[in-house]
Design a protein around this nucleic acid. Structure first.
Lengths: 342, 342
DNA sequence: CTGAAAGCGCTTACAG
DNA sequence: CTGAAAGCGCTTACAG
């Protein structure tokens, strides 16, 4: 049981004040013209006694925690897992740690999580806000904690955000299908009230329109946010139910839905792309080793993570400055594989 | 810019002491026989002023942070992502938050991460220790912070741990292949010095032995811990290189290697299970939607996560008691799909 | 060049 | 039934 050593332990041992020790250990020795001899002694003893500053005390005093609060839907979802990892990496590079919370796309949970982290734990937030969380985000703007939204945002709220051009991505994905001769293209989506999903739907519809294909509303399936495998299965069954030629392609707007979709198609004995072509968003491992590797709109996770941290830290480090909020839209990366035929 | 209200703000407003307010807000009003009228008033004003206690100050004073430090290899790896999620869930249920760190299987990183979190941030640790981290784990035992190891442990260190019966699992997986007529069974593994991986290799060898199949050392490929796709590809190429009949099955000891392996087999044009049967550990989404869904030893992630948190909290809440360390070994769940033929 | 003191926001003996 | 005071471990004006 090692006894934690504190500043005063060192001060006492050397017969100097805590002030001096603190100054030296924080590299302010020179600045305060403390003699080199004393500095050396202090640092030596600190090492000997294995001194580790208590960050809690430090944070309480300085008001800085060097911690970023991250709220995402689910860290077990590879999309958020990878994104979280990129954020963790960039944060570590800048000397920050991150506290993860999974909201399960629940506004109640994210509200509690924000409130919890607001109790002194973090210097700022990176949030992927769930549906119906406008109010809490607005409340957050009124606190003094900076934040940046990722993956989605609220058009009516003036805040930092890093997103992807969802409309364009969905447009390109759909156009790709059309160019390959598919005409009866279904779309299975989820969380349809979130902007990012709205935009994906708009892109899909626009592509159909621009190609002179009439939108068939029956081909658009909006799942509840608490979607499960069986919901996706049901949707696909409905889409393909009547006869094999009902639809010839599907656009999945998330990889979670896409993976469930592929499982369902397997169960129904439908071959990709012979019976049904598919195109999706995100790029989980599963898409690479699928029997028909999936053509998809991969998001630039590294860049999103990096920029989110950078934008956040810029604001944390420069709190007074009323810099304009940063609204950043990145391009997706269209990865063409074999699920739309060749 | 909402000004944070503190205990003294409330005390001042009511003309009482901070002591009283603190007592009431912590539910100790009754206990200290504070009049109901006063209690009500305090709670009312606290709500009005939107009082949120500063956890940092609280932690500094009480020595409790209600935070668990979690160190895993990589939160972006679905295995750890799911495990992390289960830990987060169980912790939340018990009123604890978790601070994630990805060590990338690097002992230097995990050492820094432990030291960092030891600076007042956490009440205890859940750690998946990388190779060569015995020393830091030993150091940790000497601190007053409880911890539990997951996924791996060090036989020479007496500590809490939750693992899985790796030897048995690998034995069963290999035996399953043998029972289906496969004879030239390769094994591709990684981090071979970690106990869990050692055990998997032992199980593999034991199964061969028990079935009277002579171990061919050339069929065992041990990858470096910083394994990448190309290493797996190289290993498989070597294994299958000379002629098609070199090997007829592969045991992958992790899903990360397994997924890379399937990709490699795809590139090499080898069909699962016709050319080569495979069996693996863990159960990522990818295994379900592979053209030949993968037979695998799934780990009980929910249980591992739950028990890790429970064991840890038991020790956190009962620090004096020198309870015996908990060494828990769970069974894996053998999921039979189609990658070993039918 | 160095130290005494105040204070971050809490909790908790102790006293009455 | 309630309050003054000490203290958790730091940092930072202020004074000399």
């Amino acid at each position: 049981m090692i006894k934690k050593t504190s500043l005063s332990d060192i001060a006492q041992k050397l017969g100097v004040s805590k002030t001096l020790v603190s100054l030296v250990l924080n590299g302010k020795g020179k600045e305060h013209r403390i003699s080199d001899v004393v500095c050396k002694k202090v640092m030596e003893v600190a090492r000997e006694m294995n001194y580790q500053p208590n960050q809690l005390a430090k944070s309480l005093r300085t008001g800085k925690t060097n911690t970023i609060g991250l709220i995402i839907a689910d860290i077990a979802n590879p999309f958020f897992g990878k994104l979280g990892r990129e954020i963790e990496k960039e944060a570590a590079r800048k000397g920050y740690r991150v506290m993860f919370c999974s909201s399960d796309e629940s506004a109640e949970k994210s509200k509690l999580q924000i409130e919890m982290m607001l109790q002194g734990h973090v210097d700022g937030f990176i949030i992927s806000p769930p549906m119906n969380s406008e109010e809490q985000i607005r409340d957050l703007s009124r606190s003094n904690k900076p934040f940046v939204l990722i993956d989605r945002f609220f058009p009516e709220i003036d805040s930092n955000y890093i997103i992807v051009d969802n409309q364009e991505a969905a447009y390109n994905a759909t156009t790709h299908l059309i160019a390959r001769g598919y005409k009866k293209i279904a779309c299975i989506t989820v969380n349809a009230d979130l902007v990012n999903m709205k935009d994906r739907l708009i892109g899909y519809k626009k592509a159909l329109l621009d190609s002179g294909i009439k939108l068939d509303k029956n081909l658009v399936k909006e799942l509840q946010f608490s979607h499960e495998s069986k919901d996706v299965f049901k949707a696909i069954k409905q889409l393909t139910g009547k006869n094999k030629d009902c639809i010839d392609a599907i656009l999945f707007t998330t990889s979670k839905v896409g993976i469930m979709g592929i499982e369902s198609l397997n169960v129904l004995g439908l071959n990709i792309p012979n019976d049904i072509a598919i195109v999706s968003f995100d790029d989980p491992d599963a898409y690479k080793i699928c029997y028909s590797p999936v053509t998809t709109m991969a998001q630039p996770l590294t860049e999103i993570g990096k920029m989110a941290v950078q934008v956040l830290l810029a604001e944390i480090k420069n709190p007074g400055s009323s810099i304009k909020t940063q609204k950043i839209t990145l391009k997706t990366n269209f990865v063409i594989r074999k699920s739309c035929g060749s």
